[in-house]
Nucleic acid binder design. Sequence first.
DNA 1: ATCCGTTGGCGTACACCGTACGGTACAGGC
DNA 2: GCCTGTACCGTACGGTGTACGCCAACGGAT
Lengths: 249, 249
Amino acid sequence: MSAKSDPGRSLALLWGSHTRPGRSGLTIRAIVDAAIELADAEGLDAATMRRVADKIGVGTMSLYTHVPGKTELNDLMVDTVIGELYTGVDDPAGHGGWREGLRYVAERNWDLSLRHPWLLDATGGRPTLGPHAVLKYEAELRVLDGIGLTDLQMDSVLTLVLTHVEGVARSHAGLARAQRDSGLTETEWWRATAPVLERVMTGHDFPVAGRVGEASSQVYQASADPAHAFAFGLDVILDGVQRLIDAPR
Amino acid sequence: MSAKSDPGRSLALLWGSHTRPGRSGLTIRAIVDAAIELADAEGLDAATMRRVADKIGVGTMSLYTHVPGKTELNDLMVDTVIGELYTGVDDPAGHGGWREGLRYVAERNWDLSLRHPWLLDATGGRPTLGPHAVLKYEAELRVLDGIGLTDLQMDSVLTLVLTHVEGVARSHAGLARAQRDSGLTETEWWRATAPVLERVMTGHDFPVAGRVGEASSQVYQASADPAHAFAFGLDVILDGVQRLIDAPR
DNA sequence: ATCCGTTGGCGTACACCGTACGGTACAGGC
DNA sequence: GCCTGTACCGTACGGTGTACGCCAACGGAT
């Protein structure tokens, strides 16, 4: 039983106050904020222990006095930005019926992923279960409370919507990163790739893919449009949920 | 204009035959296969250039004679395992109506992600557009051809289903990795975490989250069940697509 | 006022990573 | 038999997370 994956230690850290300063004024909050700023500006990979420490002006290893390791720092970063979601009285359940509420939940999560694209890289695996994550879960579930769904269905519907948002947000973040790394906009890349692809595909036959691919790429000037995928998928999912409410299985 | 992100070079590599051996019999195919074996066994992080070379029995830098860099090797790995999907006459469009076909597509992609969890880490960003990826796109689109959807809707519906599968598969892979790294099964982890979470949450009030969270965690003996999320979400999405077909917008 | 145990801060070191660079030795054309 | 192109590879560089051990400053007891 190693101390490596002790859930209690990580949870206590997450639910702590993070305000007690050390000798040089070093605080958990300051460490987390610096790491978030770095990740916002240059991606999660840029939030290395060395660069976080440099940004604050302390030695690298001083961070380990306040944070057990990189993993726990990531957890703290995640729960901190989740705190941006529903602050105070901004209750998703007060936005009309379940459909408007669910749409609001999806849009707020989408916005959050646009502000902090690294969130998608930092999550995955066991959930974080920090205070803001639990608050988020509560606020989002309230949207679906009392409309005729079982508790399990409420959880499943919420998970479905959040999975959809996470998927399209990941797609968006991936394209944005590719654009930054390559220096080519999506349109430029597609203009450069399409002719090469067409030439290399000569001899093979893809009737449907050719027709559909050309149609959608002409509309988006690219190979995919995450914003459209977000809206289209959300509409379809909400229609499916409507059916679930109308005709419970 | 650097050669770093030249789409033509990467495409030519993907559509090549990969069979011409060098002096010591070193082949692109052998390199890719070794990398896939490593990634299957220990995750994408284990497929380092050094370990791939060691596995084949050549020097690390010899790989760079056949592959421009790690990025291109990843692309080759991805397109290679995508080739496992619809081999030969196994056509998703021959599985009944669009609903059964779409379900078949979802299940085959789900299976593939279970066999090669690293796929989810290797994709993202611009699509790979190798021969097997294009073949997959064609085969999957045929399921939706001629049922009253526009070309754009066909592409959007397919994207929606694949995004859903990718999302729940990523969730599954994350939990599996957490289980391997921590040595705790999902049930064990939840049994260890739940009481701590309950104690740390005393003083706060989460009525709906408490009720729903307890209900679902009692069913799954965990905090989430990707297999259930896969099935539930797919049903809801298919219902929503049904509505789209019935009442085009 | 002095001493001492505790603790915050940090410098160094280790084992990894991708890959740029330059050297070596072999295969095939003449 | 010689020459040349290239397959192969050893070394090195700058990066990563963090284990370990040292130092200095603080708080409390005497």
